[in-house]
Design a protein around this nucleic acid. Structure first.
Lengths: 82, 82
DNA sequence: CAAATATATCGACAATTCTCGATATATGGA
DNA sequence: TCCATATATCGAGAATTGTCGATATATTTG
C-alpha cells in the first residue's frame, strides 16, 4: 500500500534519477528500497510479487529496473470491490 | 473479499430471512457462517473485525445481528488506491 | 426465571507472511 | 575478461494471521 502510494507521485517522494531524467517508467528498485528502510532482498521480493499480481509494471533500462503502478489493474480492483 | 462480494447482492447468495422480509440491513451472521463453511467463532471474529475497520455495518434485530457493506468506507478505500 | 438459540470472546495451535543475510545472476564499463 | 553495481533467489527464523473448540454473553420465548 505504501509503495503504491509513493508511486502515485514519484517526484514528490524520490530524488531524480541520474541517467533517466524522468519518471515515465517509475522508480528504480534502489530508491524504493532506501525509502522503505527494508532490506534489498525484501523489497526485491515485494516488487517481484507485486509485478506478478499485475499491480506494478517493470521496465529495465540497462542495469536498473524501474517500477510504476499498473493503473489498469488497480482500477479493475477498485471497481471490483465497489 | 468473498464476504464483501456476497454482500453486494444478498438475494443472490442467501436464503430469505424468516422474520425480516428484506435485506435492508444485510445478512445475519448464521447465514454467512453457513455459506462460508468456517466455524461460528471464526466468522464472528471476521465480521467483528470488519466492522471495526468500518468495512461492514452491523444492526441488531432481536437476537440476530445483520451485516451489510459500508459502501462509504469501501468507496473511500477504492478512491485511495486509485 | 429456565431453556433454547444467536453471537461474542478466549486460548491455543496451524498456516502463512515478513524479513533477513547469504548467495546467485545480470549488466555495463575498465 | 574481470570488476563493480543492480537486482533476484534461497533458506530460515520471527511475527502475524487463520482457525478451531470451549465457553461466555445476549436475547427471546415458554
Amino acid at each position: 500500500m505504501q509503495i503504491l502510494e509513493w508511486l502515485k507521485e514519484p517526484e514528490k517522494h524520490f530524488p531524480p534519477h541520474e541517467t533517466l531524467k524522468h519518471f515515465n517508467d517509475g522508480v528504480c528498485v534502489t530508491y524504493i528500497q532506501e525509502k522503505s528502510g527494508l532490506s534489498q532482498s525484501t523489497i526485491s521480493t515485494y516488487l517481484t510479487n507485486m509485478e506478478k499480481c499485475d499491480l506494478l509494471i517493470s521496465t529495465r533500462h540497462g542495469k536498473w529496473s524501474y517500477l510504476k503502478r499498473n493503473e489498469k489493474m488497480i482500477k479493475a480492483f477498485a471497481d471490483f470491490i465497489t
